[in-house]
Simulated assay, not measured.
Amino acid sequence: MIAFLGMGLLGSNFVKALRKRNEAVQVWNRTASRAKALEADGAVAFENVADAVRGAERVHIVVKDDAAVDEVLAAALPGLQPGAIIIDHTTTSKEGAIARTAAWKEKGFTYMHVPVFMGPANALDSTGYMLTSGDQALIQKMQPVLAAMTGKVLNLGSEVGRGAALKLIGNLFLVTFTAGLVDTFALAKSMDVPVEAISDLFKEWSPANALPLRIQRMTAGDYSKPSWELNMARKDTQLFMNEADKAGVSLSIIPAIAALMDQWIEKGHGNEDWTVIGSANVK
């Protein structure tokens, strides 16, 4: 028996995928109607979270944040059977994942933090990525279960909380990537370039292909042989802002990047590779 707590877009599609594999699933959600809707897929819905986990060997949870995880699991505790394994897919803080791993061990239960790079469609199709770290024997034991739910399980080593940390890092990249597109569209608007033209450009020239080399350059520690000088990158950044200003279009993140570049130029790094602006945070 499996229990699943949290019937948002991700959780509900995880449950639908489990039911497609004929897994017996008990479900709960704070808004009971969301759990009740999954009875059409063969799940059994409960209004009380302790009842939902009763008899379950595995309890999956995907809710909003650390506070929600702690609140829901505390309410579920009276119904947990001895030896139940708690598998938390919620994006949380690193500290929270570490604390819960220890706290639930003291209570006599196994807690795994397994955040995901998966959207609702991935959860339904069992594709995408799950991240896990910590007790390697436990990870090996649970690998088949987790692999059935996703395209790939990434074992990030024995450090508890490493999965939580890398999930946050990955999400930060997605946020900045999208924010970069916001400014990209704004600059295109200021110069009357249609979005379709941007899409066509990136189909032929994909900046994502340069990511491994960009990381290598940024972390090498030697910025003395530039492929793009910071002074020149700053000049282009000013061109972005000038074009936007002329059209009365606002850029969201480029002004902050320009200010960071100015700081490094003032420190005498203008003739170095522009990736020097990230050197203070490379270890």
Rank of each mutant, 00 (worst) to 15 (best):
L5T: 08
G8R: 03
A17V: 01
A17D: 00
R19N: 03
N22M: 00
N22H: 15
A24C: 07
V27I: 12
N29V: 01
A32M: 10
A35E: 00
K36L: 06
L38W: 03
G42M: 06
A43F: 05
A45D: 01
F46V: 05
N48G: 10
G55C: 04
A56F: 03
A56K: 02
V63R: 01
K64T: 14
K64M: 12
D65I: 01
A68K: 04
V69C: 01
D70L: 12
V72F: 01
V72G: 00
A76V: 06
L77I: 11
L77R: 09
P78M: 08
G79I: 02
L80D: 04
G83N: 06
A84Y: 07
I85H: 02
I87R: 02
D88Y: 04
T90M: 03
T91L: 04
S93F: 04
K94D: 12
W104I: 07
K107S: 08
G108F: 08
G108L: 04
F109P: 15
V114T: 15
P115F: 05
P115M: 01
V116L: 08
M118W: 00
G119F: 06
A123V: 08
L124C: 07
D125H: 15
Y129R: 12
S133C: 06
D135F: 12
Q143R: 15
Q143H: 14
P144L: 03
V145F: 06
L146V: 08
V153A: 05
V153I: 09
L156I: 11
S158H: 10
S158N: 10
S158D: 12
E159C: 01
E159D: 13
G161P: 01
R162H: 10
F173A: 09
L174W: 10
V175T: 14
T176E: 02
T178V: 14
A179S: 15
V182W: 12
D183G: 07
T184D: 05
T184A: 15
F185M: 10
F185I: 10
A188N: 08
A188T: 10
K189M: 09
S190M: 08
M191C: 11
P194A: 07
P194N: 08
L201P: 03
W205H: 14
P207C: 06
D222V: 05
S224V: 10
P226R: 11
S227G: 14
L230S: 11
T237E: 06
N242C: 04
A247M: 03
L260K: 15
Q263L: 14
W264M: 13
W264D: 06
E266W: 11
E266Y: 08
G268S: 08
W274H: 15
W274I: 04
T275G: 09
